[in-house]
Design a binder for these strands. Structure first.
Lengths: 109, 109
DNA sequence: ATCGGTAATCGGCGATCGACGATGAAGGCG
DNA sequence: CGCCTTCATCGTCGATCGCCGATTACCGAT
């Protein structure tokens, strides 16, 4: 008993936290969560006030972490929050803080 | 309305997430949370299996992020989870995910 | 086929990270 | 006093990060 959290799980959790380890990405995720509808990149670029390439990089990180989903719309690409992650990411915080794991694994689709 | 989360808040949240952006630190925090009593560094070193200097660095990061508290005990230093953070860190996850901020600010002591 | 608008990718920059061994500082004990 | 024990700090290394401008790729429309 009392040994460490499984390394794989720790790595998975850490990758989630790392995706939010940048203030700009925190702003983007919170923005997408609050708007709760697919938004084109241009609008996000305007909101955060950074270069388009920079925002695109951040969106790539968030997409790979499954925080964000993307759908092509004509020539554009619309990003939106991943509703599953809204539900299961805070549970990761609980696990790390020693609370019983609330059921759902972090394997969000 | 519908503009970005305040930059200062985003930076504060990001610094919390960054502190957990490493699997070893996730393991350390979860370990301290589950044991829930002050532990000497040597025990943590034994648990994670890394060099003592490396673990000390991780503990410094976690201490500066206020996830962990330290108290000197004789020649040793005992680390323990910060109970306040156990309560208020998951709320950061909620805020980022667009949920209403559950009261307490992140300014944990 | 070419043009315009949208967004991803590339290459480079300085800064930070995570790991280590070695060294240093502080306290207890003979 | 000297000597462990315990832990923090230093210096270094390669790797990664965050940002940018420039370029490329894609698609719709002319």
């Amino acid at each position: 008993m009392a040994d460490l959290l499984d390394r794989g799980t720790a790595q998975e959790y850490a990758s989630w936290f790392r995706a939010l380890a940048d203030p700009t990405r925190v702003q983007i995720v919170e923005y997408l969560a609050r708007r709760d509808r697919p938004l084109p990149v241009a609008e996000i670029v305007a909101a955060v006030g950074l270069a388009q390439s920079t925002v695109s990089q951040h969106l790539k990180v968030l997409t790979e972490a499954r925080f964000v989903l993307v759908e092509p719309v004509g020539t554009a690409r619309h990003y939106r929050i991943n509703a599953r992650c809204v539900a299961c990411f805070p549970s990761a915080a609980d696990v790390v803080m020693g609370r019983p794991a609330p059921n759902r694994s972090m394997g969000c689709s």
